[in-house]
Each structure stands twice: as structure tokens, then as C-alpha cells.
Design a protein around this nucleic acid. Structure first.
Lengths: 203, 203
DNA sequence: ACTCCAATGTAGACAGGAGAAACTTTCGCT
DNA sequence: AGCGAAAGTTTCTCCTGTCTACATTGGAGT
């Protein structure tokens, strides 16, 4: 730890720094297989220092995943559909924002849905994930109240939205949406089909 | 390696045995984080023996993922919808079979969509994945030819199917389809919405 | 202002995994 | 029989996660 000879013994805000560094590394790589020691190295502290702030690596991963869910939720909440004349106008922007978040942060998005396997932390993690779902659920609920969405249970229809968007995001990250197989604009096509399925035929 | 004192020096079919053992371990655990050495131990060989058959761990993982895709494709191909009177009858069985495959083999299914990040093996892997997609694509194509599916590009509509089913499978594996949030039968609901979106309104 | 403690860092050790190298045993062929 | 290569084994190196013992220092209480 002799990089900056005049760096103080105590970092001051190592917890934050570790998280920042880890997020940076997630942004650089495709997989989330970074090592805790590398994070410590980049943060300029000893390899054991992070253990003063996280009980183990899984805890850091869980923390990162939670941050990811929070950011995604904020992103979706901040996405407002302007001039929502049709149901498609209502749903498409938030859906595109969701998929874009995933393709822009592939390693983080993957981690968000992989860190839950570990322990009881998965419960908290799932709460954050479901908070993301709530954003879409609320929009759809309003759409149904306005009469543009079918009168089926809105939870089930929202589940269809989440499944479709989550699935498309994952497939996109995995490079499986190749134009030869799936057409040139698979997300547009899928959104079109989804909207037809949600739309109230009575109107 | 003194378990069975009269075991021959050469295993005879270690490649197969390693794959079998790894698949067994995949079936036991939720994550796919098994160690190569543990596989070797279970197979009763030294920890270096598997390297005679796989260049590295990633190669074994890729092989397992390919097997997974092949099994899934076979499962779907073997799922025939009996008495397909409606479009729903046509699509629901294969969709349910897909999701069931995922929830029955969560670790394997996860691995299938995680092993591709590594190298150029991802290309072969994606081919196998797309072969799964082809099964559904063909069914939908026939449905469109029969007039029960909208006259939009079938690739895009098939993409919607894959996205939705893959997404629901992943969410189910992650335990995110909690009834309080998403209703008691989210897959049924999502399939209902999907079928409405695919169905040709002219008929 | 001074002291002392708990929080925060560091160094070092340990177990265990991936993978490479060098050696050994056997299989299959001639 | 004999030999080359395939398939296993042992051993070694490097690295990681995590634990323990020790060092430093900011800050609360006097």
C-alpha cells in the first residue's frame, strides 16, 4: 500500500469507495466475476480492509444488486411518456428504458438476478426487485382504470409485461437476438404483440 | 484415489463420467458454482484428470450448457399439443414444458444462459440456443399459415414468445413470481395475454 | 487539552481451487 | 513382443476468500 506515501492510514469512506470501485469493474467487464482483492487493490487498501465493511463477498454482491435495482427503479420512474395518446405510447417508453438499462449495464443486470441465490439476503433483494415491478404495475393499473387495458386481473397482465421485458433484456445481453433469426427490431415487434394482448378490444 | 483398490488405472469413459457427475451436481445445487476438483473427486479420479478431456473449466461448462439446450429442444419437440382447437391449445403446452424445464433444472438453465460470456464458444452455444427457438418458431409459423396468428413478421412474434417464456422462467427460478404481487397463476395469465397478442383478430 | 477505546487498516497465515509440468501406466497397433 | 500416444497421477505455482493478530487514529468523555 505504498502508492501514495502520504495517504492517511484511514480511508475515511471505504465502504462507499469499495462499492464505487466494484461498480466500475462491473461496468468494464461482461461478467460479474471480479475478485474482492482486486477491488481492494484498486481502492488502494489492503486486501482485508473490505471485510471491515462487508461480512463477505456475497454481502458486497448483494449490496451492488440492491443498488442496481434501485437505479433501475429510479430510471423507470423518471421515464415519463409524453403525449400518451395510445396504450403503446404509454408502455413503450418505460419498456425501452428497462431494456436499455440492461444492455447498458449487462454485468450489473446479470448480477442483480444472480446474487439472490445465496442466503436470506435474497429476501431483501427480492423486495427491491419487486419495487421495480411496482413501477410498471402502477402504470398498467392506471391504464386499466382509464379503460385502455383489458379487465383481467392487472397483476397477471403486469406479470406478462415483466416476463417479456426481463426476457428480452436477458436475450439481448446474451446476444441471442440475432436479426437473421428474430427480425431486425425484435423489441419493437414484441412490444407490438404485448400491447395487442393488453389492449382492451372494446375501445 | 484408493477408494476401490481394484479400479483400473484408466477410467475408460472419463469424459462421459465427468459430464454425468457435473450434471448430477448441477441437479443438486441451486447455483452452478461447483468446483472441477469436486467433480474429479466424485468421479474417483485425480483432480488433473479432467484436463485430459476439457481444456479448462469453461469448456466443461460450455459442454454442459450445450447438453442443456439439446435436452430442452428435445423436450419441446416431444411436446405435442393434442386436439389443438384454439391458438391457446397450440401454444400453452410447449410454453409450460419450457418453463417446467427451467424450474426443474434451475442450475442448469442458469448455466445455459451464463456460459456464453466466455469466448468464441459462445457462438456454438448460441447456435444451440437458437435451435430451441426454432422449435417454437416453426409452431408459430404453422399457426400463421393456418390463419390463427396475425400477419405480422413471424420472427418478431416468435421473439415475443421467447422473450416472455424465457423471462417467466427466469423470474420463476429467482422466486420473484410471488402470488401477492403477481397473482396466483402468473404463467397462465401471461400466456393469456400473449395469445391475445398473437391471435389473428380477423378470425 | 488529554486519554483511552472502538473503529478502521495492515500483515500474514491457511485452506482450497485452477491450471501447467513432468512422470507413469495402459491401450491399441504393428 | 514392443512401442508410441492416450489417459491418469503427483507435484508445483499462483491466486482467492477468509481468519487472526497487530497497528493506527478519530473522537467521546473527562
Amino acid at each position: 500500500m505504498q502508492d501514495a506515501p502520504n495517504r492517511p492510514y484511514h480511508h475515511g469512506d471505504l465502504r462507499r469507495a469499495v462499492i464505487e470501485t466494484a461498480l466500475d469493474m462491473l461496468a468494464e467487464e461482461k461478467g460479474w466475476q471480479f475478485t474482492l482483492r482486486e477491488v481492494a487493490r484498486r481502492a488502494g487498501v489492503s486486501h482485508a480492509a473490505p471485510y471491515k465493511h462487508f461480512p463477505d463477498k456475497a454481502a458486497l454482491l448483494a449490496e451492488l444488486a440492491m443498488i442496481g435495482f434501485d437505479r433501475l427503479r429510479e430510471t423507470l420512474s423518471a421515464t415519463k411518456s409524453e403525449a400518451p395518446k395510445t396504450l403503446h405510447d404509454e408502455i413503450a417508453p418505460i419498456s425501452r428504458a428497462y431494456v436499455a438499462f440492461g444492455t447498458d449495464n449487462p454485468a450489473l443486470y446479470r448480477l442483480m438476478f444472480s446474487a439472490g441465490e445465496e442466503k436470506a439476503e435474497g429476501v431483501h433483494l427480492n423486495q427491491r426487485a419487486l419495487a421495480v415491478f411496482d413501477v410498471a404495475l402502477e402504470i398498467l393499473r392506471r391504464g386499466q382504470a382509464a379503460g385502455s387495458i383489458r379487465k383481467r386481473p392487472i397483476e397477471g397482465q403486469a406479470a406478462a409485461w415483466w416476463g417479456l421485458i426481463h426476457g428480452m433484456t436477458m436475450l439481448a445481453i446474451d446476444g441471442l437476438l440475432v436479426p437473421e433469426k428474430v427480425g431486425s427490431a425484435p423489441l419493437d415487434a414484441a412490444l407490438g404483440t404485448l400491447v395487442e394482448g393488453l389492449a382492451n378490444p372494446a375501445t
